[in-house]
Amino acid sequence: MSGKSLDIAFWNYDRTRALSDRRVRIEGVEPRYHTAQIVPQIFERMIRQRAYDVSELGLTYFLRTFANGPSPFLAIPVFPNRCFRHSAIYVGTASGIERPQDLVGRTIGELALYGHDAGVMPKGILSDEFGFRPERNRWIVGDIDFPMDPIDFVPHPHPAGVDVSMAPKGTDLGALLEAGAIDALISADVPRCVLDGSPKVRRLFPDYEAVERDYYRRTGIFPIMHTVVVTRELAEQEPDIVRAVYKGFCDAKATAVTELAHGMSFNNMSVMVPWLTGLLARDRELLGDDWWPYGMSGNRAAIDAVLRYHHEQGLTDRRFRAEEIFVPYLIDN
């Protein structure tokens, strides 16, 4: 195969695997695929080194690249990582926090940076539905369970009235929560103390799946964590190539969907997850057959929510519109 050589980076998801194993080809492209042990390493290489032509980026990382003017990147409407995030809020059982309103005035830990992708959505939802205001809390930003390199390759904005401090290097926020040194924790990753079943910690919403399903029924929002960006030069100079890249990601996701849906006939026996077929059936009933949509038309509400929350939480100096951050010729997809 001959075509334009592109470096393309993403984590090892089922919805991208058909690209990296070459079952799906990108027309007119000779790709070199890249990944990393943890996905923030991909973000850092793209933002700090411009290491790739096409790269997965967390939405908050991407939006922070607009801090000093136009970003060097534009997004395509591909969303490889999305997750309902009521389940990302953890509390100490001795903290006295029984309901969302009890978070007011508390000390809350947050993974990696103030306003990480899994922090923006919970704060926004809590503000919309329970009157939560981040400026009324004290925030400690740090790691959980395993050391991470500092997220020093993007700006760290927050409003002047918000009390944010960095935990000392090597601090485990999950351990602080279990010890009662912080009252709550918001984290994309599940802390070890929760996985181990410590009686000293629990989720704010114990029946989080029911809460998250109800949230989707009411709002139509399946929260987006990450998108895929291309360099602005590629977007402007090679629109046909960018369209082909977008189609490649869509085809790879469709391959994964087909495999899962076809596997339902055989009780998804290739996957070590009991009752997976029933879960897929319930998800399709609620979310539709395209339960992980790409393109703008199925994602407007989710995109608008994260852009609004990002501004309301002081992470961007204005509220961006989707038309400002996505490749213009893919807006109507």
Rank of each mutant, 00 (worst) to 15 (best):
V104N: 10
G92N: 05
P72F: 10
G92M: 07
F84R: 05
F84H: 07
I97A: 06
G96T: 03
T93Q: 03
P80C: 03
A88Y: 04
R99G: 11
F84Q: 04
C83H: 11
N81R: 05
C83D: 12
D102I: 09
N81A: 14
I89K: 10
R82S: 14
E98C: 14
H86R: 12
F73W: 12
V104M: 13
R85I: 08
C83F: 13
C83Q: 11
A75P: 03
L103P: 06
H86D: 10
N81G: 02
G92H: 11
F84W: 06
S95T: 05
P72M: 03
C83T: 11
S87I: 01
H86E: 06
T93L: 07
A88N: 11
G105I: 03
V91F: 08
I76C: 04
F73N: 00
V78Y: 06
S95G: 05
V91G: 04
Q101V: 13
V78K: 08
V78T: 05
P100F: 03
R85F: 10
F79S: 01
I89H: 08
F84L: 14
S87Q: 13
C83S: 12
G96R: 15
P77C: 01
P100S: 07
G105A: 04
P77E: 00
P80W: 01
I97C: 10
R82G: 13
L74Q: 14
L74Y: 03
A75E: 00
L103Y: 08
R85Q: 11
R99K: 14
R82C: 05
E98I: 07
V78R: 08
R85L: 12
F79L: 01
L103V: 02
D102M: 06
G105L: 06
E98L: 15
A75V: 03
Q101I: 02
F84T: 09
Y90C: 07
V78G: 04
G92R: 08
A94K: 13
I89F: 09
A75T: 05
N81K: 11
G92V: 04
Q101A: 15
L103D: 02
T93D: 05
R85S: 12
P100D: 06
F84N: 01
A94N: 10
L74S: 01
S87N: 09
L103W: 07
S95A: 15
L103G: 02
G96W: 09
R85G: 14
R85T: 14
T93R: 12
C83L: 13
C83G: 12
V78I: 14
S95I: 06
I89S: 05
